[in-house]
Computed example of a mutant assay.
Amino acid sequence: MRTLRTVVLVTAPPLFLAVAGLTHPRHLTASTAAHWTALHVALLPAFPLLALGLLVPLWGRPSYDLDGALTVVAWAGCLGYAAYYSGLDAVAGISAGTIAGHGVHEAVGRLFSTGDELGRAGVYALTVAAIAAGTVLLRRHGVRVLPGAVVVLGACWSFLDSHIFWPRGVFTMFAFAVGFGLLSVAASGRSGRLTNP
């Protein structure tokens, strides 16, 4: 039962984002600006929750060894993702949508450019977190974490330029859900680490 709750916890944010991606306007225009802005305001707290997929399987106090150091790197990467991707959402989502709705189209390109830089930094941080978390989980639980880790890394690669736009962004969020679910199930089993008798 605990594993099921964990899987629900880590898959809910990417699944929610995938559904939101189905309604995300493909282009920002004067006619889509209000929907664009409202959607990004609603999603502002949702994007950081994507990091739960890496944080939950690592839950607990880090040890004072390589695993502990990598756990801290994963935490830092998740924090960096949450901060910088929220910046993308605020700048290219809320700000660009707001000014596009008021006919100030000259600044939209600059906001998109700045937002894209913030988003890329956030996804790079999430990728570092995924590599660090995958390494810790591999050391703790063995090769059974590899399918989830590989799917999450593939989703990170796609996330660099897909956001949640249909179709690729929606499938990217589904990939995160699958990868996080696989990692959580693999991490819920007994440790695969060899110990001295």
Rank of each mutant, 00 (worst) to 15 (best):
I164N: 08
G68I: 06
G148V: 01
P48I: 09
V145N: 00
G119P: 05
L137V: 06
V128F: 04
G115A: 07
R139S: 03
I94M: 06
L138A: 10
V56K: 06
T98C: 08
A76V: 13
L52G: 14
T71C: 05
L118S: 02
F159P: 00
A33Y: 03
S158W: 07
Y81E: 01
T127P: 00
T98W: 11
E117V: 13
V145Q: 00
A149Y: 01
A129Q: 02
H102R: 13
E117R: 10
F159T: 01
V104P: 07
G142K: 01
P57D: 07
A133L: 04
L52A: 15
L160E: 07
L55A: 15
W36K: 04
V91Q: 02
A129K: 01
V91S: 02
G109W: 10
T114Y: 12
G101L: 08
T127M: 07
W157V: 14
G68F: 07
Y81L: 04
L49W: 05
L66S: 09
G87N: 03
V170W: 00
H35A: 15
G169I: 01
H163V: 10
S113K: 11
T135V: 13
D161C: 05
H35P: 10
V128D: 03
V143H: 14
A155D: 02
I99F: 11
L28S: 05
A90P: 07
G115P: 04
R110C: 11
W157H: 10
V123G: 01
P45D: 12
V150G: 08
S113H: 14
I94N: 03
V145G: 00
A92E: 05
T32W: 13
C78S: 10
I94P: 01
A38R: 15
F112H: 14
F112E: 14
T71Q: 10
W59F: 13
H40C: 09
H163G: 05
Y85F: 14
A46H: 12
A125L: 05
T114V: 13
T29K: 12
V73K: 00
G77Y: 00
G103C: 10
Y124L: 11
V136I: 07
G101P: 11
E117T: 14
A121W: 10
V136Y: 00
T135N: 06
L39W: 06
S158I: 05
A96Q: 05
Y81I: 02
H141P: 03
A155V: 02
R140C: 02
L160S: 03
Y64R: 13
L55K: 08
P147L: 03
W157P: 03
G93T: 06
R144G: 07
L66A: 14
T29V: 12
D116H: 12
G148Y: 02
I94W: 01
W157R: 08
M173E: 09
G122Y: 02
S95I: 09
A96R: 00
A46G: 11
L126R: 03
L43K: 12
H105M: 12
D65Q: 04
M173S: 00
I99V: 15
Y64K: 12
L43P: 01
G154W: 00
